[in-house]
Amino acid sequence: MNAFQRLRRQRIAMSTRPFQARGGSIIRCEGCGLPEIHCACHLKPSAIPEADFCLLMYDTEPMKPSNTGRLIADVFPENTSAFLWSRTNPDEALLALLNNPDFSPVVVFPDSYVREGEERATLRSTETLSKRPLYILLDGTWSEARKMFRKSPYLDKFPVISVQPETLSAYRLRVAAHDHHLCTAEVAGCLLQQQGDLAAATTLQQWFTLFRERYLMMKPHHKKEA
């Protein structure tokens, strides 16, 4: 199992009642998260990125069928960690990762949210980092991600890097507040592309596209794009 799958099992074990989500009645493959009749495990690619990823996930996010953070763990299983977010009681393994001397942690979030006077540095490129980048992705709805960004004191000391997407989000698996709000997998892909890691970015984008197409097959009003 990759890091997302382990976290998903951990979160399910914590539940006191069944999690109800849109499409939750569909029987899904535990490997890829798609409906079993559209399983794509045999098509799952893998790559070795030039950075590591840390998925910091909001509460029930690992249990949602539409979550795309899982796609990052699918494609980069040896380079992705996943943890549930907590404001006051972060996972000890998360703190150990953030303090690992082999990495330079970077919070991935719009730098426009860094308030004037804050000590947080903002980056345009990871070339200035002295160690391997560890991209911290805040995985949740837009309002949840903002909450995580503001209320995670153990992240405040790390620099912030933004993505500059050239196209609108292709997500469509659940409703976003704005078209320019990217899903987690899209953010990771844009970031890799911006930093010149084109092979890893392309592999992740291909898996995202396949996942999206097969996920949408189950939506009754979905029309296949020409």
Score class of each variant (00 low, 15 high):
134 L>N: 04
103 F>S: 12
149 F>D: 07
203 T>S: 07
56 L>M: 05
156 D>L: 04
99 N>F: 00
176 A>V: 10
220 P>T: 13
76 F>K: 00
33 G>A: 10
217 M>S: 07
7 L>W: 05
181 H>A: 12
119 E>H: 09
80 T>H: 01
221 H>Y: 15
31 G>S: 09
14 M>G: 08
175 V>N: 13
82 A>P: 01
186 E>K: 02
213 E>A: 05
153 P>H: 09
74 D>Y: 00
142 W>R: 12
173 L>N: 06
176 A>R: 11
60 T>I: 11
132 R>H: 09
165 P>W: 10
135 Y>R: 03
125 S>D: 15
175 V>Y: 14
75 V>D: 01
136 I>A: 02
171 Y>M: 12
168 L>Q: 15
95 L>K: 08
8 R>Q: 15
50 E>G: 06
184 T>P: 02
209 T>K: 05
73 A>W: 02
203 T>V: 13
133 P>R: 04
72 I>G: 01
13 A>Q: 14
57 M>V: 03
57 M>S: 04
177 A>C: 15
23 G>T: 11
193 Q>C: 04
197 D>T: 02
212 R>G: 01
108 V>H: 02
145 A>H: 00
100 N>K: 03
157 K>M: 11
128 T>C: 14
43 L>S: 10
200 A>G: 03
174 R>P: 05
107 V>I: 14
75 V>N: 01
78 E>I: 00
25 S>M: 10
220 P>I: 12
187 V>K: 01
125 S>Q: 15
116 E>K: 14
217 M>E: 13
106 V>A: 05
135 Y>A: 06
87 R>G: 02
220 P>L: 12
127 E>Q: 14
217 M>C: 08
176 A>G: 11
169 S>C: 10
213 E>C: 00
181 H>D: 13
189 G>K: 01
202 T>A: 14
102 D>G: 04
39 C>A: 06
172 R>K: 14
66 S>I: 03
51 A>G: 02
4 F>N: 00
54 C>F: 01
181 H>T: 08
133 P>T: 09
48 I>G: 00
28 R>Y: 06
145 A>K: 00
220 P>A: 15
99 N>Y: 01
141 T>W: 02
120 R>W: 10
157 K>Q: 15
206 Q>T: 05
153 P>V: 00
10 Q>S: 15
60 T>N: 12
86 S>C: 06
46 S>R: 04
143 S>L: 15
207 W>D: 02
214 R>C: 03
160 V>N: 05
200 A>Q: 03
143 S>G: 13
46 S>D: 05
14 M>N: 14
90 P>G: 07
196 G>F: 09
157 K>C: 11
163 V>A: 09
35 P>N: 09
193 Q>P: 00
218 M>N: 11
63 M>Q: 14
180 H>L: 09
108 V>E: 03
151 K>Q: 13
94 L>W: 01
52 D>L: 02
180 H>K: 11
19 F>W: 13
153 P>F: 06
149 F>W: 10
112 S>E: 13
91 D>T: 02
78 E>D: 09
71 L>D: 03
8 R>V: 03
69 G>H: 02
72 I>H: 01
99 N>E: 14
46 S>Q: 13
105 P>G: 07
131 K>H: 14
97 L>V: 01
149 F>L: 06
